[in-house]
């Protein structure tokens, strides 16, 4: 769970595509497809949360704070 919540949008989106590809390939045991499905749901929900809950962060890099 924590692992998914830490993913960036891009990484979660990529992982979701991977899940779909695996599910699509068939030849999975039921437990595997159930856990993949659940993972897919969580990835999708995470992506959605990122899109809907995210707040733009703005930082200012003035000359005094040039070293970061």
């Amino acid at each position: 769970m924590d692992e998914i919540e830490k993913l960036s949008y891009e990484a979660a989106y990529q992982a979701l595509e991977d899940v779909l590809a695996q599910l699509d390939s068939g030849e999975l045991a039921l437990e595997q497809s159930v856990s993949l499905y659940e993972r897919g749901q969580r990835l999708s929900a995470h992506c959605q949360r990122l899109l809907e809950d995210a707040e733009l962060k703005v930082r200012r890099l003035d000359e005094a704070s040039a070293v970061d």
Binding site: L50, L51, A54, L56, K57, V58, R60, L61, D62
Partner: peptide
């Protein structure tokens, strides 16, 4: 795309 960090270099 609000999940951005914007860094303003004024």
């Amino acid at each position: 795309f609000p999940m951005l960090e914007i860094i303003l270099s004024p």
